Simulated scan of single mutants.
Amino acid sequence: MLTPEQFKNVFKDPIPASSPHITILAKPNGLNHPRLGLAIPKKHIKLAVGRNRVKRVARESFRIHQHQLPAVDLVVIAKGGCGNLTNEELAKLIGKLWQRIVRRCNG
């Protein structure tokens, strides 16, 4: 997702999947594929290298799981402590949240 309007649309009445470190919000998009948006605030991850690492892991996880996801717009939001997780822990956590989104959108 690229424009602020697309992000605002997801923030209005989303389908959430949450953990203590990451929240994923989903909203049907009317397309035939999912789209990803990232919100990694400086407030929670101070250094750019940490924010970029979280973005990289989230994008890679999305790339791997996108064919299982319904046609929704997704926003991944990092919370406090997210930067302390290893790449493996982060990927595993995001993978679990994708599955929760699939269940909530299809069920």
Rank of each mutant, 00 (worst) to 15 (best):
M1Y: 01
M1S: 09
M1L: 07
T3H: 14
P4W: 00
P4Y: 02
E5F: 01
E5Y: 02
K8V: 13
K8I: 12
V10G: 02
V10N: 02
F11V: 09
F11H: 07
K12V: 15
P16H: 01
S18I: 15
S18D: 12
S18Q: 14
P20K: 02
P20I: 00
P20G: 03
H21V: 03
H21G: 02
I22C: 03
I22P: 03
I22N: 03
I22Q: 04
T23R: 00
T23A: 03
L25K: 04
A26W: 00
K27H: 14
P28E: 10
P28N: 07
N29Q: 07
G30D: 10
G30M: 12
L31Y: 11
L31R: 08
N32M: 04
N32I: 03
H33K: 13
H33R: 14
P34T: 12
R35M: 12
R35C: 10
R35T: 15
R35I: 12
L36Q: 10
L36V: 11
L36D: 07
G37C: 08
G37I: 05
G37Y: 04
G37V: 06
L38H: 02
L38F: 09
A39T: 04
A39H: 01
P41M: 06
K42P: 01
I45Q: 07
I45V: 15
K46A: 10
K46S: 08
K46F: 06
L47W: 00
L47Q: 11
L47M: 04
A48F: 05
A48H: 08
A48L: 06
A48V: 12
G50L: 05
G50A: 07
V54W: 11
V54H: 07
K55M: 13
R56N: 00
R56H: 02
V57D: 02
V57A: 06
V57M: 09
A58R: 01
R59T: 05
E60A: 15
E60N: 13
E60M: 04
E60D: 14
F62A: 11
F62V: 13
R63L: 04
I64F: 07
I64Q: 11
I64C: 08
H65P: 06
Q66I: 05
H67N: 10
L69Y: 11
P70F: 07
A71P: 13
D73P: 09
D73E: 11
L74Y: 06
L74H: 11
V75I: 15
V75L: 13
I77P: 14
I77M: 15
K79M: 09
K79I: 06
G81S: 10
G81I: 06
C82N: 08
C82M: 12
N84P: 01
L85N: 05
L85P: 07
L85M: 15
L85F: 06
N87K: 14
N87M: 09
E88N: 14
E89T: 13
L90Y: 10
A91R: 15
A91W: 02
A91H: 14
I94R: 02
K96T: 05
L97Y: 00
W98C: 04
W98E: 03
W98D: 02
Q99F: 12
R100S: 08
V102M: 09
V102P: 04
R104K: 15
R104E: 05
R104N: 08
C105F: 03
C105P: 00
G107Y: 03
G107A: 08
G107Q: 06
G107H: 04
